[in-house]
Computed example of a mutant assay.
Amino acid sequence: MNKIKEITQKNACIWPIIGCIVLFGMITAVTGNFNLSVIISAAKLCTFALLLGLGQMIVVTSGDGAIDLSQKYILTLAAYVSCTVMTKNILLGLAASILIGAVCGGLSACVNVFLKVPAMITTLATGYLFYTVILVVSSKWSSIPAKGFVNFVNKNVFGINMMTIICIAVAVLLWFLLYRTKYGKNLHAVGQKREAARLAGINVRKTVIIAFVINGALCGLAGAMAGAYCGGANQDLGTTYFLPSVAAAFVGGTNAAGGKSSVVGVSIGALMMTLMSTFLNAAKFDVGVQRLIQGVFLVFLLVVAVSDAAKKK
């Protein structure tokens, strides 16, 4: 038993892999059809939860109980920005959405770091600020995506959707950043103990701010693609993806206390959450029941993650 526990702790992706296998079996049982295209479709649909989940993972890894509750608003605002700017130029619109996401993340980080407001409260407050901006601009800015970008996100290369390819590329870049660079080592050190990291000569403030900025940029990218894939921006665009993304972050092995992350685990966790939604839809559960089940699952993950973190302390 101890050996199994040791293996699962070292390989955070084991549980989401098992979850994917179980859920695929349940989908097969409900539909009566064994179809591997379900996995390919889920990989496409999990794009937004995956990007948000990776961003959440970076913030949580920075430690001190950090979590970003403003992600869904950043995504939505970025979708409006991309739809508006892409009327002039598609690449400029994509860059603008990522930039606005990074700025939003940086704003939350500065409040958290310099004013010493806990991240949960900070992002709850800034999230409402971003939502207010959304309410103001939603009637003035374009909510219709550029046709060229819509065609791009729906394009398949060798049977794999372009959004899936982008997510793979982002995951690879984040893996390199977190596990092969000085910044990644600093981030994990800061997450384990900020005061110890400061005494070791690490610029804690800079490290945390960069974490929030990267998170915001990922939300911005997700917003641009969500706006194109969903047929345009709307005020509640990000709400659908927030809960699955948080669940993906924790089921993927992110330590609630900080200092531990798994890009592969979170990526597979996002796929698992999408397969869960696919199963609930196939089983014809009401939307309210689906949200309830996902919420209960998230609470369970948080209880496990927090209790595990408490034991390690």
Rank of each mutant, 00 (worst) to 15 (best):
F250T: 01
V287N: 14
K206M: 13
A224R: 04
T31I: 11
G259D: 06
G148R: 08
G269D: 07
G93W: 00
L91N: 11
M163W: 02
V264T: 15
I166K: 02
I27L: 12
D68K: 04
K44E: 15
V303F: 15
I166L: 14
A43H: 05
T207Q: 03
M225T: 14
I98S: 02
Y229E: 09
G25R: 10
L124G: 03
S62Y: 11
T164H: 04
T207L: 06
T122N: 00
S62I: 01
I209H: 01
N11M: 06
S138Y: 12
T240Y: 11
L54C: 01
F114A: 09
S139Y: 03
K206N: 12
S245Q: 02
S267W: 00
N2D: 15
V30S: 13
V136Y: 13
I134D: 08
V266W: 08
S261D: 10
A256R: 01
M163N: 13
L51E: 04
I21L: 14
L54M: 09
I210R: 01
L135D: 08
S261M: 10
L173C: 13
P16R: 02
I40S: 14
G216W: 00
R194G: 04
I40M: 14
L243G: 03
K312N: 08
F114M: 09
K206A: 11
Y241T: 05
V204N: 12
I21N: 05
A12I: 08
A29W: 01
I202R: 07
M26G: 06
L187Q: 08
Q56A: 04
K72Q: 15
K185W: 07
G220V: 00
K147G: 02
V246E: 03
V137K: 08
N156C: 07
G295H: 08
L99Y: 06
V264M: 14
A146F: 03
C20K: 09
K72I: 08
V136R: 12
H188E: 13
A233W: 02
L187T: 03
I74G: 08
I144P: 05
F279N: 07
L124P: 02
A169G: 10
A270S: 11
N151W: 11
G32L: 11
F34W: 14
V170E: 07
E195V: 01
C230P: 04
D308G: 10
T47A: 06
L302W: 04
Y73E: 14
T8W: 08
D68E: 06
I74P: 02
C46I: 07
G65M: 09
N234R: 10
A171V: 07
C104S: 15
V157Q: 05
V22P: 00
G53T: 00
G231S: 05
C110Q: 13
V296E: 12
I121H: 10
R198L: 13
M162E: 11
C230N: 13
N154R: 12
P244F: 02
N154V: 05
V157P: 01
I40T: 14
V137Q: 11
T76D: 05
T87V: 12
I27R: 08
